[in-house]
Design a protein around this nucleic acid. Structure first.
Lengths: 198, 198
DNA sequence: TATTGTTGATTGAACGTTCAATCAATACGA
DNA sequence: TCGTATTGATTGAACGTTCAATCAACAATA
């Protein structure tokens, strides 16, 4: 997961990797071009040779990560039977590395930019579609194998789980409280099973 | 709802009202002290006589709104039998005034600040508690009247609904897509009823 | 030579914040 | 009652910093 930007093959990718690192250490709010420069071996002004502006770098970084995710899980993983349950579990894992947590925090901050910036908005539109479609595909695969209930609506369930997980990530990133985490995990699993089985 | 800042009784409240208006027209990202000043009859520097800094104004504005909400709904409304269903419906109302929508957008942007700013974080900690407790109280009231199932866990259901609604608001504020909205509403109502009845 | 990559220095604007000064109102003392 | 402190509200102008973005020059490569 941290080797997302393992070996940048390009100056462009070097910049994206530096951006990723700067994002992880400073978060979006404190992220400046200079701070990206600190993580980048070469000159700051070189960034403007490869990207239009600061937001272009950030959005490109997001796009890169999403592409990696998409191609990493290219074939619909029928392999894992309880794939969604495991995703819920990992998002709501009470003990979660601070690195992962700071990445989630940054993603939450970045998503908030989509409230006023069309380029971020376009990205998260696509992002939501990718995850939603993946959830739906997993459910459909389960239906095909006969493990899941054929009369449930894969798209509706996928959208609901995805929406709830966004809420969970936002809540984690923006509050100190944690008591809700276990309860929400239990309830989401219960909801999912109720829809998917019987 | 818009008359939240109906008649500011104070210079302090005038500033908060101006902040609210500036927030609604510009959003958080484009919000400057000058823009607040445009909505404020008196001088910009007067703001610093009443508040520590820019964020203090914003957080105070949030606190004011939350207080208003809290005191407006002080008594647990047992009056409405399907209060939670209606709240879900209103948050996921497909046709939603652009004023309400822009307020939600701003709230999403403001919540994102809690990812790195302790003062925002403290506010949204309290905010979550207020809403969660309200949901739980409604459910408990339903159990007391015998309308709801006594063996469900009010706190867990409350936290889950609240988390999902945060996700829904964030998704609405940060993407253009709307197809998911109706599906998610249906599913949330289904989940709620499954937990609350029988 | 032409093109692409790279650099350090510089620019210009935006923005939050400060500050000295003015004003209105109230309280106080003679 | 009249003058005098005192206080809080209010103002406009200015300051200092941050930061994204530009630019002219240099290196490398083909």
């Amino acid at each position: 997961m941290t080797q997302l930007f393992g070996d940048p093959s390009d100056t462009r990718e070097e910049i994206l990797a530096a951006t990723y690192r700067a994002l992880q250490t400073h978060g979006y709010a404190e992220l400046t071009i200079d701070r990206i420069g600190e993580e980048f071996e070469k000159s700051i002004s070189l960034i403007y040779h490869h990207f239009d502006d600061k937001d272009d770098v950030l959005v490109s970084c997001l796009e890169f990560m999403l592409d990696q995710y998409e191609h990493g899980h290219t074939g619909v993983s029928v392999d894992e039977p309880d794939a969604i349950e495991e995703i819920i579990e990992s998002v709501l894992d009470p003990a979660c590395s601070s690195e992962e947590q700071s990445l989630v925090s940054s993603l939450v901050e970045l998503r908030a930019q989509a409230a006023h910036d069309p380029e971020y908005r376009a990205h998260f539109d696509r992002s939501d579609q990718v995850f939603r479609d993946r959830f739906a595909a997993i459910i459909r695969a389960g239906i095909d194998t006969g493990a899941y209930n054929a009369s449930c609506d894969p798209d509706a369930v996928a959208d609901t789980i995805h929406t709830a997980l966004i809420g969970a990530m936002v809540r984690r990133a923006t509050t100190d409280s944690t008591e809700w985490i276990n309860a929400v995990e239990t309830e989401l699993q219960a909801y999912l099973r109720a829809q998917i089985y019987t």
